[in-house]
Every structure is written in structure tokens, then in C-alpha cells.
Amino acid sequence: MGVTGQETKTGESGFLLTTLEQAVNWARTRAMWPMLFGLACCAIEMMATQASVHDISRFGMELMRASPRQSDLMIVAGRVSRKMAPVLRRLYDQMPSPKWVLSMGDCASTGGVFNNYAILQGVDEIVPVDVYVAGCPPRPEQLMHGILTLHEKVQRERVSDWATWGALGKQQPNNNA
């Protein structure tokens, strides 16, 4: 299942399309803007990652955009309560493609320390997640490692994921890269 016959045979899309792939993926990773979605304690570590000592603007994340319409990456930092879950889903829907979700911390990945009526047991119950970062809260270095893993994942994306008629209609996939 590829775009061209070349891809079905060899697994790669040929010279022109792979160069296009590489160029597009390179551009996407070098200026990925995260959306401000700090909820709880992990937000403080996310702010610390953004601030002076550990600095993710060297990876292209210079600004954090508050508006979902202008951001690429949603870092869900903190515990998601049941009251907040519909808000999170609505914000995810408002983000334009291409978009990625990074679940930061134990509470966003699995519910963390809290296993009760009020906390969603993992944000992947409502949005598809690309990278999970463990920790409570994860150190800034751990978050940076998670972001770089996401960059690597984006680098492995294929043209067929976004340039087919089928892909245009569906939402950002859980990339099987």
C-alpha cells in the first residue's frame, strides 16, 4: 500500500518523493510549536524546560502558542480530571493537521498516583498519543528526550500518510512508523 508502484515494490517512494518526505519532515520538526496545556505539577517542569537552564528553544520550540489554531504539538502536562476532559478533546479538535500529542508525566499517561473517580486514567482515553514521557514529574531532561523521540518519529513519516485521498479525510493517525 503505497502511493506509487515504486513504493509497493521497494518500500521507498523513489528519489523525488523521498526527498520531498525528508524536506517536509525536517521542516516540521525544526519549528514545532507546542500549545500551552499545562494543567498541574508537570506544567511547572514544562516551564522549567522552557526557561533558562534547560532550554528547548534550541530545538525550535521558541514560543508556546496559547491558541490551538497556531500550534502543532499538544503537551498534556498534568492530571486530566473528568471536568476537563471535554475541554481537552475540543482543543485537540481545534488544532489543524499536522498535529501531535505528547503525554507528559504519569498522570497524563496512565492516571499516575490517582486511581479514583475524578481523574482520567490516561489521556489516551480521549486523544491519540504519539509519545509518552514517564516521571512524576519528569525531569526537564526527560521531557527533552521525549520531544527528541517525537522528532525522530516525525522524521520517519511517509508521504503516504498525508498525501493520499484517504489520509486527507481522516485525522492525524497513530503513525505506525
Binding site: L39, A40, C41, G78, R79, M84, V113, F114, I119
Partner: peptide, 29 residues
């Protein structure tokens, strides 16, 4: 209430020493 975590009810289900771990996360600064 958008960050209500039910910590008080969760602490009632743990022993005193284990419930201490949850107190860090109430006022996370």
C-alpha cells in the same frame, strides 16, 4: 474544579504513611 483530583477521598483508602505521598501534589509549588 477543572483540576479536582479527589485527593481527600483517595487518602482515606491508604495508610497514613502512604497517604503522605499524595500530599506533595496538592499545592505543587
Amino acid at each position: 474544579g477543572y483540576l479536582h483530583t479527589g485527593i481527600e477521598k483517595n487518602m482515606e483508602a491508604k495508610t497514613y504513611e502512604k497517604a503522605l505521598v499524595m500530599t506533595d501534589r496538592i499545592d505543587y509549588l
